Amino acid sequence: MLLAIQNLIEYLNRNYIDDENLEKEVNIMTKSLYDPEVEKKGIEKGIEKGIEKGIEKNQVEIVLNMLWEGLDEATISRFTKIDIERVREIIKKHLN
Rank of each mutant, 00 (worst) to 15 (best):
M66P: 01
E69D: 14
G70R: 13
E73S: 13
I84D: 00
E48T: 10
F79Q: 11
N65V: 02
K81D: 14
L67Y: 13
R78G: 02
G50Y: 06
E73W: 00
D83G: 05
L71Q: 13
L71R: 12
Q59Y: 02
W68K: 15
I51K: 08
E61S: 14
L71M: 15
E85A: 11
E85M: 11
V63E: 00
K45S: 12
G70D: 15
G54D: 04
E69R: 15
I51Y: 08
I47Y: 11
G54A: 04
E73D: 12
K49T: 07
G54S: 05
I43K: 15
I43Y: 13
R86P: 01
E73N: 13
L64G: 03
D72V: 10
S77E: 02
N65E: 07
K57C: 03
Q59V: 01
N58H: 07
N58L: 05
K81Y: 09
T80P: 03
I55E: 10
N58P: 01
K53A: 11
I82R: 00
V63M: 02
E56M: 06
F79W: 07
I51W: 08
I51Q: 05
E48L: 10
V63S: 01
V63W: 00
E56A: 13
K81G: 10
I55Y: 08
M66S: 03
D72P: 03
V60M: 02
I82H: 00
T80Y: 06
I51M: 10
S77D: 02
D83Y: 06
K81E: 15
E73K: 15
Q59M: 15
N58Q: 09
G54E: 05
M66Q: 04
E56C: 04
V60L: 02
D72M: 08
M66N: 02
I82N: 00
E69W: 07
V63C: 02
K45R: 12
S77H: 02
R78S: 11
F79R: 07
E69N: 14
V63A: 01
I76V: 14
E61M: 13
K45C: 04
E52Q: 15
N65R: 09
T80F: 06
A74S: 14
T80M: 07
I47P: 03
K49I: 14
A74Y: 08
E73T: 10
N58K: 12
W68L: 11
R86W: 04
D72C: 05
E56V: 05
G54L: 06
G50S: 07
L64A: 09
T75M: 11
E85L: 10
K57T: 07
I84C: 01
R86G: 01
L67V: 04
V60I: 15
I43W: 10
T80W: 08
E52M: 09
K57Q: 09
I55S: 12
I84W: 01
L64W: 03
